[in-house]
């Protein structure tokens, strides 16, 4: 009984993971400029990774494979934001300004006049 429930749950996770991977790929192609495409990439890098790996961990059960999968998932989740930040910051430093509404300064002592679209 509990096995069937686990099986069904893991398949649901894997299927929705596949859907999210595809949506991220479509987004990377559809969105209009670099900074918005970053969001599509982070969609597949976090959500799809979590869904697919958790689904596979449920399939693997309590074993060495499950542990390895968990370590790979943790590694991917810890490094994905670092890579995105390095990429976005490199683009920003090269003088590519994001097309966006002007920066809202949250705190009075922050510097103003950053990035006008």
């Amino acid at each position: 009984m509990i096995n069937t429930v686990m099986d069904v749950l893991s398949w649901i996770l894997l299927c929705s993971g596949g859907v999210f991977v595809l949506i991220g790929g479509i987004g990377a192609l559809r969105l209009p400029n670099f900074y918005t495409r970053l969001h599509a990439a982070s969609l597949t890098e976090t959500m799809a990774t979590i869904l697919i790996f958790v689904g596979m961990i449920l399939q693997a059960g309590f074993s060495l494979e499950a542990l390895k999968l968990a370590v790979i998932m943790l590694f991917l989740l810890l490094t994905a934001p670092t890579a995105s930040y390095a990429l976005a910051n490199a683009a920003l430093q090269s003088g590519m300004r994001p097309k966006a509404e002007s920066a809202k300064v949250e705190s009075p002592n922050a510097q103003t006049g950053n990035s006008e679209s």
Binding site: G25, A28, A41, T44, E45, T49, A80, A83, L87
Partner: peptide
């Protein structure tokens, strides 16, 4: 960005 996506 695309290459990074491809790699992950």
């Amino acid at each position: 960005l695309a290459v990074n996506l491809f790699g992950t």
